[in-house]
Design a protein around this nucleic acid. Structure first.
Length: 429
RNA sequence: GCGAAUGUAGCUCAAUCGGUAGAGCGCCGCACUGUGGAUGCGGUCGUUGCGGGUUCAAGUCCCGUCGUUCGCCCCA
């Protein structure tokens, strides 16, 4: 036991029941994405470091990306996010693609962070992006995709909220306060910390940045002004569109939401669990109208978001919304093996049943029937078949319903249909 | 990078003041050689994460180290 090599820090093993959760999430993400007309795509998991150096925010590349030298001495990185890859892929084919472009993706990402609740070094993200539109209605469509997904997995507006802000609105407000643009980054950080720090600590931080007390008061007022969005034409249109899309309950204006990424230019999103015992965001996203030009393409507006698997799974687990009995049925039918003489005929039977479209596993060796039935029950098979000397002689198969414990002799040729009917009854009841 | 907790059987955990490492679950077998989940009985299971120190004696106390978890920092 002690000589088992440990998995790497911050990685996860996905046992079948864990993998089933990922698959289930993936399935829901696929359904929702496709219901909005998005196409699935993916990019490389390995990328040159320069792709991120441009615009992702310094922290991301310097501190958090897995970066290493390959055998050709090139610096490469395991992708810490998808958007730069998306931007490159679009830029490469920019003339051939049809806009508006609606793409989605689900895959692994890596960030070298210290693992804790809701955060590991290897995780999955659902990415949804809409390129070629710069309207607030496009932003609203993003919010609707998120909201419909929440609906789909059973999260109500009481349990999760999508917070909205707009960086252009914040910029305009800061300009009124005559705060120099070069301080913008620090101010954003300050705003972001508003509900994380105590008042005194927050004010001390503001002073550190070099804000006058008058400026500080104005900023304080700004991040508490729940009606400020009304001054933004963009946000007014956004919220109207969100209502029209029927997801208004899930969305609210949140003046303190900023998001860390440098490339966001307009609307920013962040979803938070209201009830769950975790402060981490469920998803983050926003409008990035300059990103295509930044990676060398022609200017093209875009908006998108990413949702990680970990916080989502924690929230769903806490609320009891994960599917029951996940990943427990490898095969509906177990073909038992009675003795040496019937071993090969049993294998043939399993092949026949599979041919008929059933999920079938065959017990791999001669064993006492009791043990084989026990195994069938353990792995969750619903039906077991017995092909002993008597059945073989008469061309019959004994089919046992492991739930009702009833057993019936049926002609071998009819076994598959008989089992299918049994399973249909089982799944409909 | 900083802080806290924690590490005992395959799993979940116990072990009083420092005094012979235990239980449940699981697994295997038998009762029950053509029929599973129940029940009963029996069996399997440990260098107490690792290294050092204190002590007559260490799972227990001390130091170090590694892993894990939680928090801070940061956050796409």
């Amino acid at each position: 036991m002690t000589d088992i090599i440990q998995p790497l820090r911050g990685t996860r093993d996905f046992y079948p029941e864990d993998q089933a959760v990922i698959s289930w999430l993936y399935e829901n993400m696929r359904q929702v994405s496709e219901s909005f007309g998005y196409q699935e795509f993916d990019g490389p998991f390995l990328e040159p470091i320069e792709l991120y150096a441009a615009k992702s925010g310094e922290e991301l590349v310097k501190e958090q990306a897995f970066v290493f030298e390959d055998r050709g001495r090139n610096l490469i990185t395991l992708r810490p996010e998808l958007t730069p890859t998306l931007a490159r892929m679009v830029a490469q084919q920019q003339q051939h693609l049809h806009y508006p472009l609606r793409w989605w993706s689900f895959g692994p990402f890596w960030r070298y962070e210290s693992p804790q609740k809701g955060r590991s070094r290897e995780f999955f993200q659902w990415n949804v992006d809409l390129l070629g539109l710069d309207s607030p209605e496009a932003d609203a469509e993003m919010a609707a995709v998120m909201a419909v997904f929440f609906q789909q997995v059973g999260l109500s507006p009481d349990q999760v909220q999508i917070m909205i802000n707009n960086r252009r609105l914040v910029d305009a407000q800061l300009q009124k306060l005559e705060i120099p643009p070069r301080k913008q980054g620090e101010i954003f950080r300050l705003i972001d910390k508003r509900d994380k720090l105590e008042d005194a600590a927050w004010e001390a931080y503001a002073e550190e940045i070099g804000l006058t007390s008058k400026q500080l008061d104005s900023i304080k007022a700004m991040v508490e002004d729940e009606a400020l969005w009304e001054e933004s034409e963009e946000l007014v249109r956004f919220f109207r569109a969100v209502e029209a899309l029927g997801v208004g309950d899930y969305v609210q204006y949140a003046p303190h939401i900023i998001r860390g990424l440098d490339y966001y230019t307009g609307t920013v999103f962040e979803a938070q669990a209201v009830t769950a015992d975790i402060s981490r965001a469920l998803l983050g996203g926003g409008r990035y109208d300059n990103l295509l030009a930044d990676v060398g393409g022609d200017p093209l507006p875009g908006v998108g978001f990413a949702m990680g698997d970990m916080v989502l799974a924690i929230v769903l687990e806490e609320l009891g919304l994960l599917p029951e009995g996940r990943g427990v049925t490898p095969a509906d039918v177990l073909v038992t093996v009675f003795d040496e003489a019937t071993l090969l005929p049993s294998y043939s039977l399993s092949a026949e049943l599979r041919q008929a479209g059933l999920k079938v596993s065959c017990y791999p060796e001669v064993q006492k029937l009791g043990k084989q039935f026990k195994h069938a029950g353990r792995i969750g098979s619903r039906v077991a078949t017995i092909l002993g000397p008597d059945e073989l002689a008469n061309g019959m198969i004994a089919v046992k319903d492991l739930e009702s414990r009833k057993q019936e002799l049926v002609p071998r040729g009819e076994a598959a249909d008989f089992i299918k009917k049994l399973l249909d009854k089982a799944s409909s009841s």
